[in-house]
């Protein structure tokens, strides 16, 4: 029989920290059956948590997701897409300003 984890009860309806995925990882330890992660009632998942959830899903191929809201589904899709395409970093183009004394720093800060 499939094991079902109600994420809103196990973690929260508002999931922010990456470390929350460890709670799911611990629940899956040694489980051989299929597992359903039920996201009913979950209103927010952070990108960090979702990224770690993706890792958990890579480790345990027997996971299915259920009752994901549009927001949760969209975050999972974003992370999945990001993990399967080459990442392009946007280079910070703004120059580095170096100040060796407080006076020159103060003059610069007066402009912002």
């Amino acid at each position: 029989m499939d094991k079902k984890l109600k994420i809103s009860e196990l973690i929260s309806t508002d999931i922010r920290s990456r470390a929350n995925a460890e709670i799911i990882r611990a629940e899956l330890d040694g489980v051989k059956d299929d597992v359903i992660l039920d996201f009913a009632g979950v209103t927010f998942v952070s990108r960090s948590f979702t990224d770690e959830l993706y890792n958990v899903m890579c480790e345990h191929k027997n996971i299915k997701l259920d009752n994901t809201s549009d927001f949760v589904k969209s975050m999972i899709d974003t992370v999945t897409q990001g993990r399967n395409t080459k990442r392009t970093f946007s280079e910070e183009k703004s120059e580095i300003k170096e100040f060796d004394d407080m006076n020159s720093l103060s003059l610069f800060l007066a402009t912002i």
Partner: peptide, 17 residues
């Protein structure tokens, strides 16, 4: 580091800060 509508800059502070 500062980033706002007027621009962005990365600043090395004097060693005394």
């Amino acid at each position: 580091h500062r980033y706002d509508s007027n621009g962005a800059s990365f600043i090395k502070l004097p060693d005394s800060i």
